[in-house]
Design a protein around this nucleic acid. Structure first.
Lengths: 353, 353
DNA sequence: ATGAAAGCGCTAACAT
DNA sequence: ATGTTAGCGCTTTCAT
C-alpha cells in the first residue's frame, strides 16, 4: 500500500489548494530512482552521461527525470566530488565603467572556454568591500580570483592563496603580497605621449593627472616627467595638476592654466575622463593647443578636435589575466609573472579624417 | 602519542620538499575542533556568531581557526541548510556593450543590497548558449535569473520556474512563457522622436532600423510609423531601411538615401549604433539634415553636430528588474508584472552648447 | 554552554 | 549493467 504514494510529485499540482503554498521541494535523485524503479547510482550514471547503462533503463530514468522536473543539484555534487563547480570571481571597481566592463567581458570569454562561471563583484573602490568580497568568494570556494586592487593591503589573501586559491591582479599590482599581475605600460605610454608633444616643438606642456594615491596616475606622471627631461626640458611644477578625477576637474584645470600669464601650449591628460574635460574646455574656448590623452575610448574618433591618444588593448588585460589564472588553476607553479600590455599612439578626433 | 600529530597543518610549510606538491587540503571544522579541543558543533557556533559560547572557548576556537587558515565551506553549508548561498544569475548578450554593462552594474548594486552574489554570463545572442547557461545556473541553484532574451522560446525554463526558480526578463519579453518583464517604452519613444521631426516641418523622414527579428527594432519602427501617420503623412517605404546592425550599415544607408532624386531631409535612427553611423556620414558630407536617434550614449554631447536622442534610464531596467526578482524571491506571488521604463527627448551634440 | 548523532544530495569505491 | 555503502563538510535536532 505504501507503494501507492511513492510516486507523489513533490509540491506537485492537483493537491487541494492548501493554506500555505508549500515551497515545492525539488526532486532528488532518490525521487527519480524510486519513480524509475532503479537505484540512485543508476540515475547518477544517466544524469552524468556515463556509458554503462542499458538504453532501456536510461530511457526509464530520463522519463522520470522529465516527469519530476529533476535537475541535478550542483551543490551536493560539488561537495561530494571535492571539486567545486568551476567558477572564478572577478572583483572590479565598477561594472558600469567601460574600462572594467571590457575587462570583465574578456575574462568571461576565457572563463567560458574553460567551462567556468564568472562571479562579478564591484568594490566601488572601497577597500573593506574589496576585502569582504574576496573572502566571501573564497568561502564559496571559487577556483580563483581576478582582482583590480582598490585597497592597499592584500595580505589578507595570503592564507587562502596558501590553501590553493589562485589570484591574479589586474591593472595595478597588489600590496604586501606577491602574485601574478597584468598591467599596462603606464610609464612607457605616458613617455611616448609626452615625447610626441616635445617632438612637435612644445616647451610648455601641462601635465594633468589623477589622485596621486592611484597607482596608474603616479606611473603616468613619472613617464611624462621622463619624456620632458629626455627632451632637455625641465618639468615646471606650475604646469602639473593632480587630483583630477572627473571631466569637470579637467575642465577647471585647463581654464585655470590658460588664464596664466604664460599658458601651456599643449596638454597631457593622464586618463580619458581628464581628456574629455580638456577637449570640452578647449572647444568651449575655441583655444589652440595640442592634446595627448592616456586611454582611448568609444567615439574618440568623433571628438570635435584632433587628439592623440595613448591606446592599448583593454580586453587584453582581462584576457591575459584570465589565461594566467587558468594556467595556475591547472597547476602551473612557475615563478610569479608580471605581464605588461603595450601601448601605441593613435590619432583621433574628427578633424583627422 | 597519536595526539602529537593531530595539530598537523594540512599542507603546512616546514615539510621536506616532497616530490609531489600535495594540493593543500583545506582544514574543515573537524580539524579546527580537534585543534581547539572542542566539538565540531562548538566550532560551528563560533564561526556563525551564535551567542551561546563562552568567551574563553570561543577564543580557543578562533585561535585554531587562524592557525589552520580555516574558511567555512559554503558548499557544504548550502547543502545542509537547504538554502543555497544567495546568488542570482544574469544572462545578457555581451558584457562589453555599455548598454548591458549598465544593466549589469545596476543589477549588481541591488544584488549587493540583498547580500546576494551575481553570476554574469553572456549569451552572445546565441539561443543555444542562452539555454545552456540558464539551465546551468539552475543546476547551481541560483535563487533567480535575470535574462535579456536572445532566443525565441523560453519554455524550457518552465519546469524550473515551477520548482521555484524565479525569472525576470529585461529589455525584451520572453517567448512562450509568462514572466515578469521590464522593457523600455520603445513605441512611445520612437513616436515622440519622429513626431519631433514632423513638428519641425519635415515631410521626408528616413527611418533606419535594425533587423526585424529584434523585438526593439520592430517596436520602434511601429512607433515611428504611428508618428508619421499621426502627422497626416504616409510612410514612404523607400525611405525605410532595415537590417542595420552597426555604424557602417547606418553610414551606407545614409549615403544611399542622400543619393536619391528626392532625398530625405531628416533621419530617425532606431539605435545608437545607427545614430553614430548617420552622424559620421552626415559630417563627412557636410550634409544638412535633422537627426533623431534612439538611445543616448556616452559623449553624445560632444558629437560634432546637433542630434536629438530618445533617452531613458538604462540602469533603471536593471534596477527595476532586480527589485522585481528579489521581491519574487522573498515570496511575492502577485500577478505577473510588466514594467515600462519611460523615455525623454534630449538635445545632444556640441553645437547645442 | 556544549556535544553526539543524523543527514542534506550527491559521487566514489567497491560489490554483484 | 546495476546496486550498496560510505562519506564530502556542514547544520540540525535533541541530549546533557
Amino acid at each position: 500500500v505504501d507503494e501507492l504514494v511513492m510516486g507523489e510529485r513533490p509540491g506537485g499540482a492537483g493537491d487541494h489548494p492548501g493554506p500555505e503554498p508549500v515551497p515545492p521541494r525539488r526532486p532528488t535523485i532518490t525521487d527519480v530512482a524510486r519513480e524509475a524503479r532503479v537505484s540512485i547510482k543508476t540515475v547518477s550514471r544517466v544524469v552524468n552521461n556515463q556509458p554503462s547503462v542499458r538504453a532501456e533503463t536510461a530511457d526509464r530514468v530520463l522519463t522520470a527525470v522529465r516527469r519530476l522536473g529533476f535537475r541535478r543539484n550542483d551543490t551536493a555534487r560539488a561537495l561530494r566530488s571535492g571539486r567545486p563547480a568551476a567558477s572564478v570571481g572577478l572583483i572590479i571597481e565598477d561594472l558600469a565603467n567601460p574600462f572594467y566592463s571590457a575587462i570583465a567581458a574578456a575574462v568571461e570569454e576565457v572563463a567560458r572556454r574553460n567551462d567556468t562561471l564568472l562571479i562579478t563583484a564591484s568594490s566601488e573602490e572601497d577597500r573593506d568591500r574589496e576585502r569582504r568580497l574576496a573572502l566571501e568568494l573564497c568561502e564559496r570556494r571559487v577556483d580563483g580570483l581576478l582582482v583590480v586592487p582598490a585597497g592597499d593591503d592584500h595580505g589578507f589573501l595570503r592564507p587562502d592563496m596558501e590553501m590553493g586559491i589562485q589570484a591574479v591582479f589586474l591593472d595595478r599590482p597588489p600590496s604586501r603580497l606577491t602574485a601574478d599581475t597584468v598591467v599596462i605600460d603606464n610609464v612607457g605610454g605616458a613617455r611616448a605621449g609626452v615625447a610626441h608633444l616635445v617632438a612637435a616643438g612644445h616647451r610648455r606642456i601641462a601635465i594633468l593627472v589623477d589622485r596621486p594615491a592611484i597607482y596608474t596616475a603616479t606611473e603616468r606622471l613619472a613617464g611624462a616627467r621622463a619624456a620632458i627631461e629626455a627632451g632637455g626640458l625641465t618639468l615646471d611644477s606650475a604646469l602639473v595638476r593632480d587630483g583630477l578625477h572627473d571631466p569637470a576637474a579637467g575642465r577647471a584645470a585647463v581654464a585655470e592654466l590658460l588664464g596664466r600669464d604664460d599658458p601651456p601650449t599643449a596638454f597631457f591628460a593622464s586618463n580619458n575622463r581628464i581628456t574629455v574635460g580638456v577637449v570640452e574646455e578647449l572647444w568651449w574656448r575655441r583655444a589652440e593647443a595640442d592634446v595627448v590623452g592616456f586611454d582611448d575610448f568609444e567615439l574618440s574618433h568623433l571628438l570635435p578636435r584632433p587628439v592623440t591618444v595613448v591606446a592599448y588593448d583593454v580586453a587584453e588585460i582581462g584576457r591575459a589575466g584570465a589565461e594566467l589564472l587558468f594556467g595556475r588553476i591547472a597547476g602551473d607553479s612557475g615563478p610569479t609573472q608580471r605581464i605588461v600590455v603595450p601601448t601605441t599612439l593613435v590619432q583621433r578626433g574628427i578633424a583627422s579624417r
